[in-house]
Simulated scan of single mutants.
Amino acid sequence: MPNDEKPTTSVWTRPRPQKREHLTREQIVAEAIRLLDAEGVEELSMRKLGTRLGTAATSLYRHVANKDELIELVVDDVYGEPDVPTVVDRTRWRTAVTHTAGELRAMTLRHPWIAPELGQVGLVHIGPNAMRMSSALLAQFEAAGFPADEMDQAMATLMAYVIGIATAEAAYLSVIARSGRTEQEWVAGLRPAFDEATQEHPRLRAGSSAQQDVHPQRIRDDNFAYGLDRVLDGLAARLTT
């Protein structure tokens, strides 16, 4: 029986339209990222983007078929930001992966709208930047000695940790940004209520008290590094089995 199912469509699976002098795909993507960074994905529309670019929305549709395709393009453009080592020797794979994880976290914090969109676009990203980044990360796990059938799983485990914690971190920072306070001011303002709430929870109170003089960003950085180290400890254990 012939297979009548239509293939999954993507902006990357159809021919790119011819360039037009007054507007390019790159200009559209760059302005869309600026809009997303400033206002969030809920405010992204082809009409609003066209206005920001000084053109009608119909002009954008010559380059992207719909908003989903635009999201594919902006996600891949952002994936081009991290500095990911491509040549790694076996003794330094963990250093390379740690660096890459830090770059991915920074990418997510710069563009807090991106994490939810990763799932909306799909679990497989076939844009050129996403492919280069994934290939470089796989090379790091290959250098470590992971077998071919386990490298993808190791990479997925790392990505799940980094994107998961960075998403929560970005949401927390967004709340602070809306308050108009610095992170230190926001945390200091919350402390009296937290101390009151933890009167009957001494473990929580002790942990918070031990860090009350530490800058909140330092705490976030340390927490990220601790979790990343434990993830890599678990992955490294696979190399000795």
Rank of each mutant, 00 (worst) to 15 (best):
A115R: 09
E142I: 13
L239H: 01
D37A: 13
P192T: 01
F194L: 13
Y226N: 14
P112Y: 01
A143F: 13
S45C: 08
T240E: 10
D221Q: 04
E142R: 09
D222N: 10
D149G: 01
N223M: 14
R47D: 01
T241N: 15
R52H: 05
R220M: 11
A237D: 12
A143C: 14
T91G: 14
T240K: 06
T55K: 06
A168S: 15
Y79I: 07
A148I: 12
H215N: 09
R20I: 15
T100N: 05
F141E: 08
E142G: 12
T13S: 09
A156L: 13
E72K: 04
W186E: 02
M46N: 00
R181A: 11
K67T: 02
S59D: 12
E69G: 06
T55Y: 05
G127I: 09
L235R: 04
E196L: 14
H63Q: 11
I71D: 00
V231E: 10
Q120P: 00
G102M: 04
A38P: 00
L53C: 08
V187Y: 02
P85H: 02
V175S: 03
G54K: 05
L204N: 05
H63W: 04
T51A: 11
G227D: 15
E142D: 15
T91V: 14
W93N: 03
L239Y: 00
R203H: 01
A188W: 01
L104M: 13
S59A: 14
Q153T: 09
T51P: 03
G189L: 00
N3S: 09
T9G: 07
L138T: 10
A236F: 00
E31I: 10
Y161N: 05
R52G: 07
M131E: 13
R132N: 12
A143E: 11
L35M: 14
A237R: 13
A130L: 08
L35Q: 12
A56R: 02
Y61W: 08
G80N: 13
L204A: 08
A154M: 07
A193F: 10
V124T: 09
S174T: 12
E183C: 10
G102P: 12
V41H: 05
R62M: 08
R25E: 15
M133P: 12
I28M: 09
F194A: 14
D229E: 15
L36E: 04
A160W: 03
E183M: 11
R16T: 15
R205H: 10
V88P: 14
D221E: 11
T108E: 06
G145N: 00
A225K: 01
L123N: 02
L232G: 12
A236M: 03
D37G: 12
E103T: 01
G122V: 01
Q140W: 08
A193N: 10
T198D: 04
A56D: 08
E185A: 09
E196Q: 13
A206Q: 06
P7Y: 01
L44K: 01
N129D: 09
D37N: 14
P192W: 02
R203E: 07
T240W: 00
S45R: 06
T9L: 08
E117N: 05
R16V: 15
V84E: 02
M107L: 09
N129G: 11
G119N: 04
A177L: 03
R62Y: 11
V64A: 04
D195A: 08
N66S: 05
E5P: 06
D76R: 03
V88W: 09
T95K: 12
G180E: 04
Y172E: 15
R218Q: 13
L44I: 06
A32S: 11
R92T: 15
